[in-house]
Simulated scan of single mutants.
Amino acid sequence: MSGPNELGEFLRVRRAALQPEDVGLQGYGVRRVPGLRREELAMLAGVSPTYYSRLEQGLSTNASEAVIASIARALNLTRDEQAHLFNVARPERTPRRRTVVKPDRARTGTLRLINSLLGTPAVVIGRRSEVLGWNRLGHRLVAGHLGFDSPGHVADRPNMTRMLFLDEHTKELYARWHEEAVRAVASLRVLGGKNPEDPELTALVGELTVKSPEFSRMWAKHPVERCVSGVKYFRHPEVGEFELTFEVLTPPDDSGHRVLMYTPDPGPGAEALELLGRDVETTRGSVVRPGR
């Protein structure tokens, strides 16, 4: 996603984030560069320094699962980071036939489902964080400045990550923007590890790297996390500040689609959604039709 040696970049960033004391080693003197030395990590992983150096330099692409697992343990990686390491260390070895990328579309049943949730904001997101559909309350919550039918305009449909970094309305929407941005970059890293040959995902990363210094800095740190639940803090232009719990549901197919839903605790969040919902015209069973 960011160059020919994604594995090496990931290993270097994670190694630099560890101090000898973090892994039970004693550090001596002043280090010229931060973090563990290559030979120290190699020792912890039980591999030769030469072999580990070749991995970081992109000169070895056939590491066994046992070696990758040992390196993951030495780096104290989280479960999501371990999965990402395996993805970038063992890329698809059979060249894929290039095919025309067809515009993605949400299933009609999924759109009907979210439109039946009259009091719950919901957004259907594609495998590249593009918006494939939303219900009326979800639209009013996260992108009221855009047209409700904009997900149906395939050529320029909204993208949650692009909006977060490049759209001023969206940047102002989140009271804890930096926290939200890091979470988005970490999720995009997960998607990139699973789909390294996706040209549209690569183009999105390239665009954001060029246009957003904040994204470029965050991307270079290689955060990796599957963000499937948590709390989002809003500063909404119509109803003020509040927080909502979010859950990300994944349909049991290979579409890569996700359904993002927001729910409030009693208090300001519930009151804010009630106020937003008062002016939302909803029709049970209505569906956002994809554009042609």
Results as ranks from 00 to 15, higher is better:
Val101Pro: 12
Pro103Tyr: 02
Ala106Pro: 02
Ala106Tyr: 07
Thr108Met: 13
Thr110Asp: 08
Arg112Tyr: 10
Asn115Gln: 09
Ser116Arg: 12
Leu117Thr: 08
Leu117Tyr: 14
Gly119Ala: 11
Thr120Ala: 13
Pro121Gln: 09
Pro121Asn: 10
Val123Phe: 04
Val124Asn: 02
Val124Arg: 00
Ile125Met: 13
Val131Pro: 10
His139Gln: 15
Arg140Asn: 10
Val142Asn: 08
Val142Lys: 05
Ala143His: 04
Gly144Ala: 15
Gly144Asn: 14
Phe148Arg: 15
Asp149Met: 10
Asp149Thr: 15
Ser150Val: 11
Val154Glu: 12
Ala155Cys: 09
Asp156Gln: 15
Pro158Asn: 12
Asn159Glu: 09
Met160Asn: 07
Arg162Leu: 05
Arg162Thr: 12
Met163Leu: 14
Leu164Thr: 07
Leu166Ile: 13
Leu166Gln: 12
Leu166Phe: 09
Asp167Glu: 13
His169Glu: 13
Leu173Gln: 01
Ala175Ser: 13
Arg176Ala: 07
Arg176Lys: 15
Trp177Ile: 00
Trp177Ala: 02
Glu179Gln: 11
Glu179Trp: 07
Glu180Ala: 10
Val182Gln: 13
Val182Asp: 06
Arg183Ile: 03
Arg183Leu: 11
Ala184Val: 04
Ala186Cys: 03
Ser187Tyr: 10
Ser187Gly: 14
Leu188Cys: 01
Leu188Trp: 02
Arg189Phe: 06
Val190Lys: 04
Leu191Arg: 13
Leu191Asn: 06
Leu191His: 05
Gly192Met: 00
Lys194Gln: 14
Pro196Gln: 08
Glu197Met: 03
Asp198Glu: 11
Asp198Cys: 08
Pro199His: 09
Pro199Ile: 05
Leu201Ala: 02
Leu201Val: 04
Leu201Ser: 05
Thr202Val: 09
Ala203Trp: 06
Ala203Asn: 07
Leu204Lys: 00
Val205Asp: 00
Val205His: 00
Gly206Asn: 04
Glu207Tyr: 01
Glu207Thr: 10
Leu208Asp: 00
Thr209Ile: 03
Val210His: 11
Lys211Met: 09
Lys211Asn: 05
Lys211Thr: 03
Lys211Asp: 02
Ser212Lys: 02
Pro213His: 10
Ser216Cys: 01
Met218Cys: 04
Ala220Cys: 07
Lys221Thr: 12
His222Thr: 08
His222Trp: 14
Pro223Asn: 11
Pro223Lys: 14
Val224Glu: 01
Glu225Trp: 02
Arg226Ile: 06
Val228Ile: 09
Gly230His: 12
Lys232Phe: 05
Lys232Asn: 07
Arg235Ala: 11
His236Gln: 03
His236Leu: 02
Glu238Ile: 13
Glu238Val: 15
Gly240Lys: 01
Gly240Glu: 00
